[in-house]
Each structure stands twice: as C-alpha cells, then as structure tokens.
C-alpha cells in the first residue's frame, strides 16, 4: 500500500498522539517529545514514499525508536531520571488538587514502569494504552506474536508486584 496525501492525513490523526506518548515516556519532556514526534513523521513518511508498506504503524514506531536512540546518543546518557516529574502531562484536569493528586499517582506509576526492561514497557504501552493486538505488536517489533503475548503477561505481573511493593 502506497500512502497518499489523504491516507497520510488519516494516519497522522490516528497515530500522532500515540507516537507522542511513546516518545514522551522515553524523554520525559513535552518539548523534546514534540520535536522527535515531528521528525518521526518526517522519516516515517520518507520511508513510506519509497516502499510498499502493509502496516505503516510499524514503520512510524520504528522511526520513533530511532529518533529516541539518536536523541539519547547526543545526550550521552541512557537512563531516564526517576526524579523527573511529568507535571506537564495533564492538560485539562478540573481542579488543581485533583491534578496534583493524580500526578503523584502517575509519578509513582511512572517510576514503577521505569524499572521494567524497555521491551516490556513498550509492549505494555502498545497493548494497554494504544490498544494494539498481540498480532499488531508482533508486526511492529517483527517478533512472533506468541513471544509478544508471553512478554506482555510477564510485564504485567512484574508491574503489579512492584506496584504492590510501593
């Protein structure tokens, strides 16, 4: 399938927020996430123009991973600081108290998630936040869907254990 203007527009509408969130988890800055998301779509589209693509989501997530890797290479460190508070995540909470309360919970979840291996973090994100099936995730990662299913269950179990310890 070759992407045209209309299909690119639809893909962007469907994928932009997900890619942004995916990138944000890795860089923990709204501004950097915006820049990298923009570059992801640039690179992803350039690839799609030259190649027949069956599942474009896979291309864009791969492009996002590449952008993130390049970013961290330039930053010269790999580990995301657990102290970074994602206060800018919440756009439109009804009240400040609720927002701050939510942020504490989210901060805690963020910290717990960060303790998992990166592939587990990604699979949890795709499965439980972006709503992808195991088959779709297997196409993104180019791994058998059985492997994805096992990794997802393992990740969820670890997340629960660590969450309960907090």
């Amino acid at each position: 399938m070759k992407l045209n203007q209309r299909s690119f527009g639809k893909l962007y509408d469907k994928l932009a927020s997900k890619i942004y969130r995916f990138v944000f988890f890795k860089v923990r800055s709204a501004e950097i996430a915006q820049d990298l998301t923009h570059d992801t779509f640039l690179k992803g589209w350039q690839y799609c123009q030259k190649n027949e693509v069956e599942f474009p989501q896979a291309i864009f997530y791969q492009a996002a991973r590449q952008q993130i890797a390049d970013f961290w290479r330039k930053q010269k460190f790999q580990v995301v600081s657990l102290d970074a508070k994602p206060l800018e995540m919440i756009d439109d909470q009804p009240s400040l108290d609720e927002r701050l309360a939510k942020n504490d919970e989210l901060n805690q979840m963020f910290a717990v998630l960060a303790t998992l291996p990166e592939d587990q973090q990604e699979i949890l994100t795709w499965r439980y936040l972006d709503g992808y099936s195991y088959r779709q995730i297997s196409r993104i990662l180019n791994k058998p869907s059985g492997t994805i299913r096992v990794t997802a269950h393992r990740a969820l179990k670890q997340l629960k254990e660590k969450w309960n310890q907090c």
């Binding site: 942004y20 779509f41 994602p86 995540m89 989210l106």
Partner: peptide, 26 residues
Amino acid sequence: MLKQFKSFKQIRPDHAWLRKTKDQLM
C-alpha cells in the same frame, strides 16, 4: 493497578501543536 496504568492515556500533546505540525508536514 491496570486502571492506574491506563490513566497514562492522559498524556497527550497540545491540540494546537498537533494541528500545526500536521499542516507543516502536509
């Protein structure tokens, strides 16, 4: 725990930025 995890869906970009970026890319 899963419900808490799913509240990460609130992480989303600014609407104005989304539109602007789409226009630029198009």
